[in-house]
């Protein structure tokens, strides 16, 4: 059923930007310098805003389904309960009531902030992917996804500029900054392969015309990354093995902690508003 595919695909897109935004939001008030603290928070808010648009769309799809179809969708008990009680689902429910195995974000975005170079490297790898993804998604036959992609692209353009310039700045900086940037690129590179490996859901979404064939983006991605890495005077990172799992719900140990913090209030005090 195509609406289930659209729903799951939309949730995967949303999970990526929500977890990335949540990671960067954790640096609010802790940035190395006021101006960059604000820059990070702006980027984080852009991403959480994109996540909101996507979750809102996902919630609309759920609410338009029959009760019988809805009951099949989620394992998370609190979501099940809402559906059984015939309550409509909101964007917040989708963010706060799903468990780690329901989340379909790629492993890259859940990785720790680490030092500044690690934070920059993760954004550098993710934002560049998002740019290519959203550009391809402009052609989606789903007009809502295409519209969200178009709106988000302007934001992502700034994100890649921010991250790329930091890679160049650190790579082209002192011996220490160069070494740290190189190390961070190397450490995070093994999480990039997953973004371009089509899972079953993405294949289905591509076949019905709403989704993007991410495997076709990889070559361009590599070239664009390499251009910046070279400009920074750094070595292109390598990986003998690419980590996968997040897109199928198999996460690193970090996601549970992120969700524990992010979802605490709604789980401790259900339906709390403030």
């Amino acid at each position: 059923m195509s609406s289930v595919t659209t729903l799951k695909y939309t949730l995967q897109l949303a999970d990526n930007v929500l977890i990335m935004g949540q990671r960067l939001a954790a640096l609010c008030g802790k940035g190395p310098i006021l101006e960059q603290d604000i820059a990070l928070t702006n980027i984080s808010l852009d991403q959480i805003g994109q996540a909101r648009s996507l979750y809102q769309y996902a919630a609309t799809i759920v609410n338009n389904m029959s009760v019988a179809d809805k009951a099949q969708l989620f394992n998370a008990p609190l979501l099940q309960e809402k559906i059984n009680n015939k309550l409509s689902i909101t964007e917040d429910d989708l963010a706060y009531l799903r468990d780690a195995w329901d989340y379909r974000n790629c492993l890259l975005v859940e990785q720790e902030n680490g030092d500044w170079a690690y934070t920059v490297a993760r954004s550098f790898f993710f934002d560049r992917f998002q740019y290519l993804l959203y550009t391809a998604m402009l052609k989606s036959t789903d007009s809502t996804l295409a519209a969200i992609a178009e709106k988000s692209l302007k934001e992502v353009q700034y994100h890649i500029k921010w991250a790329s310039e930091w890679v160049i700045r650190l790579g082209d900086g002192t011996d220490i900054s160069k070494e740290k940037m190189q190390q961070a690129l190397q450490a995070r590179w093994e999480y990039t392969g997953e973004m371009f490996t089509m899972n079953e859901l993405e294949k289905e979404a591509y076949n019905i015309g709403i989704g993007v064939d991410v495997s076709q983006l990889q070559q361009t991605y590599q070239q664009q990354i390499e251009t910046i890495v070279q400009e920074a005077g750094l070595q292109m990172p390598t990986a003998a093995w690419m980590q996968t799992g997040g897109k199928n719900g198999v996460h690193t140990e970090h996601l549970g902690y992120i969700l524990a913090e992010m979802q605490y209030l709604q789980r401790a005090y259900p339906n709390m508003e403030w």
Binding site: E35, Q36, I38, A39, E165
Partner: peptide, 14 residues
């Protein structure tokens, strides 16, 4: 505060 003009413009934007 910014390290150079380019960063200053971007920081100003933010």
């Amino acid at each position: 505060h910014a390290a150079d003009a380019q960063m200053a413009i971007e920081n100003a934007r933010d």
